[in-house]
Every structure is written in structure tokens, then in C-alpha cells.
């Protein structure tokens, strides 16, 4: 496995009064696409929120290795500091700023960056990747369609120049063709050097795109391994890929 960028070690996370993550271990290597699959309520979103700092683990560690630096414990940092270290979180349900213009949404992704010239160049790059965002630059983001908002949410996250991009359900509520397009783009982003941690209910798409994957059930990792192996695993096929249970079918 490549050099780890992120290591979660026995994280115990609570949301309010609810104990959601019961000791999660998870590693993401440099340049990888790692998928996190599992049913609704398994705690996948909570994992991402713990990495980006919106939630803090009560116990356990979340270690991140910035470029050429010493590991940092993210559990001690606020979200506004974590994004500055190169981790962008593209939240569930897109959550673009509806009243801000498309262009402002992209610029706000680069909020912490002071290098105006490089930000302008990245803005051009994002618009080249998603031409529709250039055409709609002055419109309020709330006027975009669901797929366009997803592109804007990804573009906004890219504007921080992330080394690690966290994606929460990018396929949610989108037409299958749009999902194909989005996943193609995620592959491109990864090939251009960004590490991805992808939370998905659409396990088939996620396992096809990812190098490795983790399967979560009720706050624990129950299976992990190469994405291709998991896609062949009978348990995974039955529970998450909608394959007919062969033993049942044989009877």
C-alpha cells in the first residue's frame, strides 16, 4: 500500500447523545481512491465529519500527514484549520451556498488562499472541467439543477487545492447518466494527483471506481480490502450489490 495520508485509529465518535462510531480503523494511502460503503445509518458521514473536524472523537486518533511534514492529530483542530492543511470536504446533499453566485461559491472554496494569481488560474481550470459553471457564473447557485450543483460542490472543493478530497454521496438524487459523468470526473481528479475518500450508497459505482474499500455496519468496519475483491465477495454482493442470494436461489 502507498504511503498513508490519513490514518484513523480506534476512533470513538458521538453525535449528541448517540454513540455512532465504535472504534473505527481506516487508512487512506497517497494517490488512492478509497470507498466507504454501507447501509444508511452505518456511520459513513460521521467518519467524514470526524476527519474534517465538524465532529471530534471522544477517543482514538485521526492522523494526517501533510506534504513532507510530521503527522498532525486532526482531532485537536477546528474545520477552518483542517481545510488549510489540504483536506476538502464535499458534504452530503451538495450544500452549495444557494444565495451566492456560482462564481462566489467557487471563490469561497479558495477562501484561505492568498495567492490571487494561482486562485484565478484554478478558477479557469475548474471552469474548463465544468463548462456549465462558466456559463452560469453570475447566477445564484440555488438556480442550478441537482447535477450542476454537484459539479459546483466538487469545483468548490477543488478550489482549495486539496491533497485529500472527502466526498459524501456524490450520486445522491442524481440521474444515472449524470452519476456516470460525475464518477468519470472523480477518476480524472484522482489521476491528476488528488487522493479521494468516497462515501457512497451506490456500492457498485463506488467499487468500480475505487482501489480499496471499507464496508461499515452500525459504526464498525466489518470488511475491507481491494475494491475488486470486495465486489466479488458473496456477502457484499448480496447485501450491497443487489445480487440474488445464490444459495436461496438454488433451493
Amino acid at each position: 500500500m502507498p504511503v498513508p495520508v490519513l490514518e484513523i485509529d480506534a476512533a470513538q465518535v458521538w453525535r449528541g447523545q448517540t454513540h455512532v462510531l465504535h472504534g473505527i480503523d481506516l487508512t487512506v494511502g497517497e494517490g488512492e481512491i478509497v470507498a466507504l460503503i454501507g447501509a444508511n445509518g452505518a456511520g459513513k458521514t460521521t467518519v467524514l465529519m470526524t476527519i474534517s473536524g465538524l465532529l471530534r472523537p471522544r477517543d482514538g486518533a485521526v492522523r494526517y500527514r501533510p506534504h513532507g511534514g510530521d503527522p498532525v492529530d486532526l482531532a485537536r483542530l477546528a474545520p477552518e484549520a483542517i481545510v488549510g492543511l489540504g483536506i476538502a470536504h464535499c458534504p452530503e446533499g451538495r450544500q452549495v451556498f444557494a444565495s451566492l453566485s456560482v462564481r462566489e461559491n467557487l471563490l469561497i472554496g479558495a477562501y484561505l488562499r492568498r495567492d490571487r494569481v494561482a486562485v484565478a488560474a484554478d478558477l479557469d481550470r475548474v471552469v474548463a472541467r465544468f463548462p456549465i459553471l462558466g456559463e452560469r457564473a453570475r447566477l445564484p447557485a440555488g438556480s442550478l439543477s441537482g447535477g450542476e450543483q454537484m459539479m459546483l460542490a466538487i469545483g468548490r472543493a477543488l478550489m482549495s487545492r486539496p491533497r485529500l478530497l472527502l466526498l459524501d454521496e456524490p450520486s445522491l438524487g442524481l440521474a444515472p447518466q449524470i452519476v456516470e459523468t460525475i464518477f468519470d470526473i472523480l477518476g480524472d481528479i484522482n489521476r491528476a494527483g488528488t487522493t479521494l475518500l468516497l462515501v457512497e450508497q451506490n456500492a457498485a459505482m463506488a467499487l468500480e471506481l475505487a482501489h480499496r474499500a471499507y464496508v461499515m455496519e452500525t459504526g464498525r468496519v466489518t470488511l475491507s480490502g481491494a475494491a475488486a475483491d470486495l465486489a466479488d465477495n458473496p456477502e457484499v454482493r448480496r447485501a450491497y450489490l443487489g445480487a440474488a442470494d445464490e444459495t436461496m436461489a438454488g433451493r
Partner: peptide, 9 residues
């Protein structure tokens, strides 16, 4: 929350 994810204090 999303403002915080953008790095806004």
C-alpha cells in the same frame, strides 16, 4: 457548518 468547511472563521 459548510462555511467552516471552506475555512471561514
Amino acid at each position: 457548518d459548510v462555511a467552516r468547511l471552506m475555512g471561514i472563521n
